[in-house]
Simulated scan of single mutants.
Amino acid sequence: MSNYPANNCLLSIIMPVYNAGQYIETVLQSIALQTFSNYELVVLDALSTDGTKEIVEARQKEDQRVRLISEKDNGIYDAMNKGVASAKGEWVYFMGCDDGFYDASVLERLFYSLTEEYDLVYGDVLWVPDEVIEKGTCMPTDLINRNINHQRIFYRRTLFQQYGGYDLQYRIASDHELNIRFFCSTAIRKKYVPYTVARYHSGGFSANKVDEVFWNNWKEIFKKNFAQHLPAKIMYDKLGWYCRCLIDQQQYAKAAPIFFDVLVHTLSPGFVKLTMEQYFKSRKLHAG
């Protein structure tokens, strides 16, 4: 069905792939079955060697909305930035190569929310094989404890021009850092819609991995983005928790400046007590 002027692409679905031959047919079918038709699919193939490229090329011949970019990239977030740069749609959505839309009517239902009134629209996502739905509104401070799944989110493309794209220094958590920037910005107009957007395979790229650079920069990320959403005491309490996490990991040199920063701003005997207890516990545990 056509829900939008034919000469104006509403949505660019951006899908980075590499050796995704076992999944690619399923996800391409999930997209092709959508009852909403005014989209393009931009597939960024990082020079696959397992037939992924040939499968996409075959689909491209059948559907002019499919575009293939096949070239070496500097990781998944570099591919996503390239996808945004080449996108023609007013909105962008990132699809994992082993994931898929929840049902055939997802885009048709979401279409009515992708308007000039909003810059970022998000729904729910089903994690598989866990069969758990990540749902509900996301407040800026929710992103302190964990990222919002990017497959819940539709972004207005101009956000990436105004606020920057994925920061490539974060090899695993760049989507978390970007979502912190976008959700914490009061200038970005957001809307939650109670629809399940996608099925997300929980064994994906970032599962069970730690982005050391992201966590090394956490204090700066935290203070730059969350200060306007938290009272100072709570903000420094949260940084105190991070300080104790570093101590637990024996990263004492990184914990020390955060310890003094929190102490200067809170003068909290309770913080000192908890942190010193964690320090001696850590030293004792690792000494044994």
Rank of each mutant, 00 (worst) to 15 (best):
M1D: 07
N3S: 10
P5D: 07
N8R: 14
L10T: 03
S12F: 14
I14V: 13
M15A: 05
M15K: 05
V17P: 03
V17Q: 07
A20N: 08
E25P: 00
Q29C: 03
S30D: 11
Q34G: 06
S37M: 08
N38H: 12
L41H: 10
A46V: 01
S48D: 03
S48A: 06
G51R: 11
E54C: 04
E54P: 01
K61G: 06
E62W: 06
E62F: 09
V66E: 02
L68I: 10
N74M: 08
A79K: 06
M80Y: 10
N81C: 04
G83K: 01
K88Q: 15
E90D: 13
E90Q: 15
Y93V: 02
F94T: 02
G96N: 11
C97M: 03
D98T: 07
G100Q: 07
Y102K: 04
L114H: 13
E116V: 08
E117T: 09
D119L: 05
D124L: 02
V125K: 01
V125D: 03
L126Q: 09
W127C: 02
V132P: 00
I133G: 02
E134A: 11
P140D: 02
I144C: 03
R146M: 13
I153R: 04
T158S: 13
F160H: 10
G165M: 03
Y166F: 15
L168V: 04
L168I: 12
D175P: 00
E177I: 09
E177Q: 06
N179G: 04
N179D: 11
I180F: 11
S185L: 03
I188V: 14
K191N: 12
V193A: 08
Y195C: 01
A198N: 04
Y200V: 03
Y200R: 10
S202R: 07
G204T: 05
F205G: 00
F205V: 10
S206N: 13
S206F: 07
A207P: 00
V210H: 15
V213Q: 14
N216L: 08
W218C: 00
E220W: 07
F222H: 12
K223T: 15
K224A: 13
P231K: 09
K233Y: 13
K233T: 13
K238C: 13
G240E: 02
C243F: 14
R244A: 05
D248V: 07
D248L: 12
Q249T: 07
K254H: 11
A256R: 15
A256L: 14
P257F: 15
I258H: 10
F260L: 13
D261R: 01
V264L: 06
P269Y: 14
P269L: 14
F271N: 02
K273P: 00
L274F: 05
T275R: 02
M276E: 06
E277W: 05
E277L: 07
R283K: 15
K284H: 11
L285E: 14
H286S: 09
